[in-house]
Design a binder for these strands. Sequence first.
DNA 1: TCTGGGGTCCTAGGACCC
DNA 2: TCTGGGGTCCTAGGACCC
Length: 447
Amino acid sequence: MRRAPSILHLDLDAFFAAVEQRDKPSLRGRPVVVGGTGGRGVVATASYEARAYGARSAMPTAEARRICPPGTAFLGGRFAAYRRTSDVVMALLRELSPLVEPVSIDEAYVDLAAGDHDLSVPGVTALALDLKARIAAATGGVTGSVGVGTSKSLAKIGSELDKPDGLTVVPAGSELDVLHPLPVRSLGGVGPATAERLAQIKVTTIGDLHRLSLVDLTTLVGQAHGTGLYRLARADDDRAVVTDREAKSVSAEETFARDLTDPARLTAEIDALAGRVGSRLQRSGTSGRTVTLKVRRYDFTTLTRSLTLPQPVDDARQIAEVARRLLGAVDRSGGLRLLGVGVSGLSPYAQGDLFAQALDEPTEVTEQPEPLPTDPAPGPAVVAWHPGQDVVHTGLGAGWVWGSGLNRVTVRFEGPRTAPGPVRTLRADDPDLQPADPPDWTTPDGG
DNA sequence: TCTGGGGTCCTAGGACCC
DNA sequence: TCTGGGGTCCTAGGACCC
């Protein structure tokens, strides 16, 4: 915790709904729910009018429809409009300080100590009131709640304390007085599971939490989490405001209107998801080594399967082939509710680069390892091997490409069905190695 | 017509290496 | 023949956040 209340947290009030009410005057004063409007949609944001009837974020939209009165507007959301409005607000924050950390589209921290400000309580109070007025003016009436304190944790709690359109300044020295009466759920990192564990030992407020020993707390909730909560209960939080965070993963997922079983449909969905992930990776100039498939079954059981390749990929087709292979080893009987495709282990390197190094081969930065010539020449076809591709080798059997370098290819030969088998590195022009049709996983046996 | 989509971080076990 | 740790990587799942 710092010596002055120099951390500001801004949380825009019912943001998506507020933008809708701003842009459509007929919605003002009426309950508005923004989110998925289909049968399986959930609420992203409920206006304060809708909250009065019990509508909440993450609630199934179907339930919100039951509890909200006739005349409630259910909207699908216009993300470009939200993004534009958010950008206006973030620009105002950057006028206060170069150290602005957007947490999400409607939330950010500002380190006022990096600007030229009076950090007394009256000083930051005046600053925050002025900020709120300028946000409302610049956005056409969208309001925000502001907390100012000596740490991120206190600033965030402050912005929650007086919503909507609120302001709370927590003076240095008064942190524990503010924290201790609050429920443990007010602390970042305490969700339903942790709150339940704490409740079982009669810990419900942050004051209760303060009385637990470090050993008891880490025994209860784990080393890292326990240590973090121990410190937060003491207002011991020196986390910095971080302006730029590198993304660590990129993913796309989709819940289907009806559960899918048709293999062709599932394949098409994977291709579409991989396409979204691949283009986002390429746009950001990154690629990643680990491809993850997420599956939610008809009964909502959810699992992930991942595979780490020897070199990063950003190509949609290659991501899709790996994801399809992972799906082939999952029990699809009963139907799938959701599919997701993700890439993690991101690095700024181009595809192929790392693997060439890993194979201790000369790295030709300016030359792509693929494609090799593909003229319809007589003899064994020269092919550009790519991860996920199905192959067959005379003698070694069926497998699939795990990685490829300038003139070598690493193949995972299969055990039963799509289980990972032994890995062999072969010459890329090995005449015994040929592309093959993908394994048949259309029978719903689960593999 | 119960339960989205995009992320982050942590834990734990097994493989593998020294 | 019996018994080590430590460190890193990979995989899977869970909690949490907005």
